[in-house]
């Protein structure tokens, strides 16, 4: 019980500290980082204190310290799973799917007729539960990472396609007229004006696709996989009620997801430095 009360006390104190900090120093850059960090730590302390204080069984919810210990003790296994699911399954599928989507968007670019048809259909498909296609692709491509990559390709294709098609239409008539006065050919206009102008849209799609890629790769493993991989490990560890391992995999997935997203956001910053949403931010 003491642990639980202690954690609750810490929570109240930290909340008060955050309220005070937010009121006094909300424009300080360090404080802006410190407040969410303190909030995150508070959640962990609350979790730890309540689980330990109320003697919650680790089969239901293991405390963070136990998860941390589990991560430290099974690093090689986590690395194999990461390699199998993220690097082989998600990343290769992501590259192929996004590449194909951009290629198709550029290919249909010359035909407004196809665009008008493709955009609503793509928007519609992007809202469908595409993960459902996973069992079929696992049947087609076998249990190894190829089938996971295939699921990822299908999942990321439509969001990226829709954004890229919209992006290629994002130039205004004035800019296109300017290119015409310079007697630019179609390809010059595409490379020098319309592709750069499409980049903010493309990166919007690419960022959405990072999360989808990880979800696709992990969920596809629920339908069959070799004896490694994050989705495989999660589903078998749940079966053995080895919850610390499940949480360890989830922590790795969360870290990988944030890192992947951060990487794409970083590239976006470099590519679309001219866009208003990126300017004025150091």
């Amino acid at each position: 019980m003491i642990g639980a009360w202690g954690a609750l006390g810490f929570w109240v104190l930290a909340t008060l500290a955050n309220v005070w900090l937010a009121k006094r120093f909300s424009h300080n850059r360090l404080v802006q980082l410190f407040i969410p960090a303190l909030f995150g730590v508070t959640l962990l302390v609350l979790w730890e204190g309540i689980v330990r204080g109320l003697n919650v069984s680790p089969v239901i919810l293991p405390p963070p310290s136990m998860i941390g210990a589990r991560i430290a003790s099974s690093l090689p296994m986590l690395w194999t799973d990461f390699n199998q699911t993220i690097l082989k399954g998600a990343l290769s599928g992501y590259l192929m799917g996004c590449g194909a989507a951009v290629a198709v968007a550029v290919a249909v670019d010359r035909s407004p007729f196809l665009q008008r048809g493709l955009l609503p259909v793509g928007n519609f498909v992007a809202a469908l539960p595409i993960v459902g296609i996973a069992p079929i692709l696992v049947m087609w491509f076998g249990f190894d990472w190829q089938s996971k990559a295939a699921v990822v390709v299908v999942m990321v294709f439509f969001p990226v396609l829709v954004n890229m098609v919209a992006g290629l239409k994002a130039t205004d008539a004035l800019q296109r007229d300017q290119m015409a006065t310079w007697s630019a050919s179609y390809w010059q206009g595409l490379v020098k004006l319309r592709l750069p102008a499409a980049m903010p849209f493309l990166f919007n799609g690419l960022k959405i696709a990072t999360t989808l890629a990880l979800i696709g790769a992990i969920v596809a493993e629920f339908f069959g996989s070799p004896t490694r991989g994050m989705g495989f490990r999660i589903s078998t560890a749940v079966g053995q009620l080895d919850l610390p391992l499940v949480w360890a995999e989830i922590a790795v997935a969360a870290l990988a997801g944030s890192a992947f997203y951060g990487l794409v956001a970083l590239i976006e910053k470099g590519v679309t430095f001219w866009h208003p949403s990126q300017r004025g931010r150091a």
Binding site: N18, I35, P36, T211, M230
Partner: peptide
């Protein structure tokens, strides 16, 4: 609430990058 905004929003945005379905 400014405090809630500053402590919670970064996590809410970060959590969108996490493959939640895995749990």
């Amino acid at each position: 609430s400014k405090a809630m905004d500053m402590s919670f929003m970064p996590w809410a945005i970060a959590s969108q990058t996490v493959p939640i379905l895995a749990i």
